[in-house]
């Protein structure tokens, strides 16, 4: 039987790649050190597959088609953007497990949109290249990594409770597998950040700390109780990405979190939180 052996929250801030020297050295050390620790912790979980929950930034999907939730079930490549520090190329997927998540969902009230040939963006590639690939080096083997994209950047947004339910469905699909899959799920997202609005550059440390505390407590009910208008007003349109955190937490059984790092980084226009989700810890 497959199982979810752990999860993480981590950011995918592209500004840290285009302006790496903008914050103080101590801040840079905190953030890059957090990615390294996440990689070590991921390897220690001895996973066979990783699932990254990302979100489109109105690049992959256009106004002609805006999926609420979509999973890459076939060939993968990317990232689509040319960002310093990220390499483009083919990515190893676990097509069997991705297909199982889709078919299990269809039988249980979750009608997945599927991407059979998919190019990922930085919300997948930053966790993949700075955490999954270093973990592969430690383990000496490939870690196929399934992309899931939730509507966080473009309305209509997936409702927060639905994101958590989707995480639970992913867990149920993994557990329905006869294979001894050990799956780690990564919720990829920044906390407070304003993207393209007049407030861009602000960070709300109070909101960020609130979210991190809910993660540590494993309080999924409170995490999914936020109203979208409140999130946008307090923490910006980018903070809608906490949907990815809710999905990851919903996938990890009886999750409780352990904060790895937090940094409010206005130079990188985002509140950056790193957290590990431990299963069955309550």
């Amino acid at each position: 039987m497959g199982k979810i052996v752990g999860g993480f929250w981590m950011p995918h801030d592209p500004v840290m790649l285009v302006a790496p020297d903008a914050p103080a050295q101590a801040v840079r050390d905190t953030v890059w050190g957090a990615y390294e620790r996440c990689a070590q912790r991921l390897a220690a979980l001895d996973p066979t597959t990783v699932i990254i929950i990302g979100c489109d930034h109105y690049i992959l999907f256009g106004p002609h088609c805006l999926p609420s939730y979509v999973i890459g079930t076939g060939d993968l490549d990317g990232p689509i953007e040319g960002l310093p520090g990220l390499t483009k190329g083919v990515i190893d997927n676990n097509t069997a497990l991705a297909g199982r998540i889709v078919s299990h969902g269809a039988a249980n009230g979750f009608d997945w949109a599927v991407a059979r040939a998919f190019t990922v963006d930085h919300s997948y590639s930053i966790p993949h290249q700075y955490v999954v690939r270093p973990a592969e080096q430690v383990l000496g083997r490939s870690l196929p990594t399934i992309p899931v994209y939730l509507a966080c950047g473009v309305d209509p947004y997936i409702p927060l409770p639905r994101a958590a339910q989707l995480g639970a469905q992913i867990r149920a699909a993994v557990e329905s597998s006869d294979d001894d899959e050990r799956v780690v799920i990564i919720g990829s997202g920044g906390i407070s950040h304003w993207v393209g609005t007049v407030e861009m550059g602000q960070v709300s440390e109070a909101f960020d700390q609130e979210i991190m505390a809910l993660g540590v407590a494993g309080d999924l009910a409170a995490l999914t109780a936020y109203r979208d208008d409140d999130i946008k007003a307090r923490a910006g349109n980018g903070a809608m990405e906490i949907r990815n955190f809710a999905c990851a937490m919903g996938a990890v059984p009886d999750a409780r979190g352990e904060q790895i790092a937090y940094a409010a980084v206005p130079e990188w226009v985002t509140g950056l939180g790193f957290l590990q989700l431990h299963p069955g810890a309550r």
Binding site: V18, A19, V198, E199, M200, G201, Q202, E267, V269
Partner: peptide, 20 residues
């Protein structure tokens, strides 16, 4: 940011994106 109506401190708020 000016075209969005920012001025003064809001324009000068330090961010990597603005520095570019």
């Amino acid at each position: 940011k000016e075209r969005l109506g920012a001025s003064g401190e809001a324009l000068n708020s330090f961010s990597a994106a603005l520095k570019k």
